[in-house]
Design a protein around this nucleic acid. Structure first.
Lengths: 341, 341
DNA sequence: AACGATGCCGGTATCGTTACCGTTATTCTA
DNA sequence: TAGAATAACGGTAACGATACCGGCATCGTT
């Protein structure tokens, strides 16, 4: 019961094996210049002592860690989950492991809190590079490779992968228009996101392209969560002239519309057409017509790009656009002809 | 263009601010004993240089990191996703951030590879403690608090949280039995998991409790994935006397049964009753009757336990059992009376 | 006026590991 | 057999940060 040793270090291994730390480090990293007997002895000491090297200490001296960082504000929302699936797929077949960093909540302690923490993860080679789905301001000095997914408008210079939000939005609108809808409500997402703005532009352009005007009472803004979407949907559907179709900024928003429609006794698609964006895994079960933006694919590609960056291989392009695709299910239908009274 | 500085360190901040590193460290950690003018000056230097402290370096000297580790072999399967949701909820309202470590694939490089890596994450206080959903052998020396979720049978001594797998299994079987089923197929999970064995024991005990015998041809073993479940389901359903109901080891397994039933033209629940285990988020959409084991709740509770451990507060119990609950949807129906020919 | 208390700051010793350079003993070459 | 090459290992200096100790002013006491 002598002294309470917190953890067993390379020092302990070295001294009980009767060698220097250098030698232990050599066998740890599989380098040459160590007799096979010595190797075995050291290995058995490692086993019996239960030694594991410290990630932190190693990253301070070592250059290559074979570790990729993923930075997310919140890992529990569907978009994040899908991204992670893609990244998981990519790293599973690579030599890299993954370290996901999150604070659990975007609102935790303000912007500064996050930026500071985010960058310190990838700073100084704890990871070899990082994928981010949050804004990382360029004022922070980092030489580590970064790839961002669906980036914030303020995200500068970094390579990124994003979906063709504008085109996807146009596709969705064309579909709705072709079904005869003229009063189409819109529930937008967080205005600070580039994706959000692109989708809204697609909405507007399609409307004017069809010779329609943009009715501001039909345009609401949420934050991509189901909760606020419910409020927006209520607003839209209690209008004197409610829309016949609603274009939701993302699938979670669409779910909010479903909820409100249900509580108001509106049937989808009979009384109201709804179209979403994202195609999260739940969408197919509720029959939501939506725009697939292959989120998981974006994670997969981002990882591949990052690995290239780490290996100093050239990128085909700084930004990779993933094509969206309209997925028609059964939440939309052609508008009934106007009943003549 | 003089020398290419990789990253900006506390040294750089100190020298350009004309103070010592100690002082910079003090303002960084919000300690007293530094003049407010000096503070401001240092802060502005930090901003203009884009300095962020290195997580690795900090963890070597600092004791408290306000970081919780989560160790998972694969972050893309539904169980892991649900656990993460619960953990995310718990840390969002805490002072801790989360670091998830994964290799992306259980089969990546064998057991030793993983154990080594897993422990080195939490070793030496990169994190203040860790939650694990994988086996961590006790031979590794760590003083950091560990809480394990749904632990492997070989997981020793560590505090853990798990569902009442046995009781849940019995509940499911009683339900099936009450519906008149007598030939109930079983698709088990990975036999090295304690949860798996408990569920199987519930299956067996319920059968003999009802005066039935255990037909070994009705018992198959998968690995909790949909792919292998499909093989097991095929095996079961092509039997001379196929079962009238199938108890799937988890919901993903149940999905495999759905797939096979569909390709064989069997309607659920008309021609075949199916019951699952887990109640993952997809299950409600496909109308699967299952046993909810509140996975996300397990993650939430594990996090709370870990935080207590970190703060040296006493735990109410070393193992926390989360009660399961049968969720009846529409994948089961009463067995038709035997048609008299 | 002399003293201690306090505010503010710098210096140094680590933390655990790897990179780099030395050092010794042994074997090989000519 | 002398010299050089090699094998096998040890010593030391970082990496970037914090903890701890101590030093100098300045201020308030009695």
């Amino acid at each position: 019961m002598s002294k309470k040793k917190a953890t067993v270090t390379i020092q302990d291994v070295a001294s009980t094996a009767g060698v220097s730390v250098s030698t232990v480090s050599r066998v740890l990293n599989g380098k040459a210049d160590v007799a096979s007997e010595t190797q075995e002895r050291i290995r058995s000491v490692i086993d019996s002592l239960g030694y594991t090297s410290s990630l932190a200490a190693r990253s301070m001296r070592s250059t290559k860690m074979n570790l990729i960082g993923l930075i997310m504000p919140d890992i529990a929302y569907p978009f994040a989950l899908e991204v992670m699936k893609g990244i998981n797929r990519a790293i599973a077949e690579s030599e890299y492991d993954l370290l996901v960093y999150t604070t659990g909540d975007v609102r935790k302690s303000g912007r500064a809190y996050h930026e500071q923490k985010y960058v310190s993860l990838l700073n100084n080679s704890l990871t070899d590079g990082a994928i981010t789905v949050v804004p990382v301001s360029a004022t922070f000095s980092t030489t580590a490779p970064i790839v961002s997914i669906d980036p914030h408008i303020t995200n500068p210079g970094y390579p990124c992968v994003h979906a063709t939000n504008y085109q996807g939005s146009v596709d969705a609108m064309q579909y709705l228009l072709s079904l005869g809808h003229k009063r189409i409500g819109y529930i937008g997402g967080r205005p600070e996101l580039a994706s959000s703005n692109r989708r809204f532009k697609g909405y507007c352009d399609s409307l004017v392209g069809a010779g329609l005007i943009i009715d501001e009472s039909l345009v609401t803004t949420g934050d991509f969560t189901t909760e606020t979407a419910i409020q927006c949907a209520r607003e839209l559907l209690t209008l004197d002239q409610p829309p016949t179709a609603i274009f939701a900024g993302n699938d979670q928003t669409a779910m909010g519309v479903f909820t409100v429609a249900d509580e108001m006794g509106l049937r989808i698609p009979d009384d109201l057409s709804v179209i979403g964006f994202d195609n999260i895994s739940e969408s197919k079960y509720i029959g939501l017509t939506t725009v697939d933006q292959f989120i998981s694919e974006m994670g997969f590609i981002a990882t591949q790009m990052l690995i290239k960056l780490i290996n100093h291989e050239p990128l085909e392009a700084q930004t990779h656009k993933v094509k969206t695709q309209l997925v028609i299910r059964k939440s939309c239908r052609a508008l009934n002809q106007q009943v003549v009274r």
